[in-house]
Design a protein around this nucleic acid. Structure first.
Lengths: 153, 153
DNA sequence: AGTGAAACTCCTTGTTG
DNA sequence: CAACAAGGAGTTTCACT
C-alpha cells in the first residue's frame, strides 16, 4: 500500500502541520540536504500523497460561525437516487464535506453558515428541496475542542 | 465582525483552494501589484483570518482509509467531567477533530484509522477508557462525496 | 492603501561524486 | 542521496504617492 520510508513520513508530518515550511527548514530538521527534500516533496505531490495545499481559515472571523453536521436519509437507494443527490448536494457552497455512511442514515454533511437563520434558509430552500430526501437531522457545533487536518502518521 | 473588503475576500478564496499560488499569480488575477497582495496576506495571517497553511493528504494513500464519526455521550456534565474529557481526547492522534455539540449527544469526533481492527483498538484501549463515558455511537465513511476545507465566502 | 524597484532568499535544474 | 553551482523566480522591505 504505502511505499513511504521514514523520511517521507516525517516530511508529510511536517507539511501537514505547516506547509509554508521551506525545503531548507525541513532539510535542517531532518538532517538531510535541500535537494533530497526537494526531490521527495515533488514525488509526494506527483504520486498523490499530497492532494493540495490549502489555507485554513478561522470560521468565526470570516463570518461562518455556525457549523452543522447533518444526517440525511433518502427515500430509496437506487443508483439514480443516490447519484442525483450526490451530484446536486456538492454544488452547494455551504456543504464543505459530504460522506456516504454506513448505518442508520445515508449521508453526513458538514455545513458552514453564518448563523441559525442562514442555516434555516439553506435547509428550506436548498437541502430539503432535493428529490427523495426522507429525513434530515441537524446537529450544531457549540465549541471547537480540536480542529486539525493532519492524519496520524 | 469582518472588516474585510472585496480584495481580501478574493485573496482568501483563492488561498483556500490553493495556498501554493504565488503573490505574482494572485496579483495578476486581481489586477493589483505584488506588494499589495503581499501586505494583505501578511495582515490576514497576523490578524488570524488565516489560521495556518496545511498540506492535505490522501487518507487512503497514507494508510488511513477508515474515517469514523463518533457520537460521545458523557455520564454527567459537570465542568470537571467536560474539561477532563476534552483534555484527554485531544491527545489521541487518531482524533482529528472534536466538537462539543448541541442535541442528543455531547461530542462529535472525527477519527482516522487504517481499518476496522485499528478502530476497535482505538475504541477499546483509548476512547472507552476515558472517565465518565456513557455511550459511544460510531458511524463509518463508505465514500467521500465531497471533501473540502474551504468555507463559502 | 497602493506601487515600483532593490536586496535577499528560495526554488529548480544540472553536474558530480 | 549529498554537495555544489548558477539562473530564474519569489519574497520582503522601503521610499514615494
Amino acid at each position: 500500500m504505502t511505499d513511504l520510508d521514514d523520511i517521507d513520513l516525517k516530511i508529510l508530518s511536517l507539511l501537514q502541520q505547516d506547509a509554508s515550511l521551506t525545503n531548507k527548514e525541513i532539510a535542517f530538521q531532518l538532517h538531510k540536504s535541500v535537494a533530497t527534500i526537494h526531490d521527495r516533496t515533488r514525488r509526494l505531490k506527483e504520486e498523490g500523497y499530497i492532494r493540495r495545499v490549502a489555507a485554513i481559515l478561522d470560521p468565526k472571523k470570516i463570518g461562518k460561525g455556525l457549523i452543522a453536521f447533518s444526517h440525511v436519509l433518502l427515500n430509496d437507494h437506487t443508483s439514480t437516487t443516490l447519484t442525483t443527490f450526490e451530484r446536486e448536494v456538492i454544488k452547494f457552497p455551504e456543504v464543505m464535506e459530504c460522506f456516504q455512511m454506513t448505518g442508520t442514515f445515508d449521508f453526513l454533511l458538514r455545513v458552514a453558515t453564518a448563523d441559525m437563520e442562514e442555516y434555516q434558509r439553506f435547509y428550506r430552500n436548498k437541502l430539503a428541496n432535493l428529490p427523495n430526501i426522507s429525513t434530515v437531522q441537524s446537529f450544531f457545533v457549540l465549541t471547537e475542542v480540536k480542529s486539525d487536518t493532519a492524519y496520524p502518521l
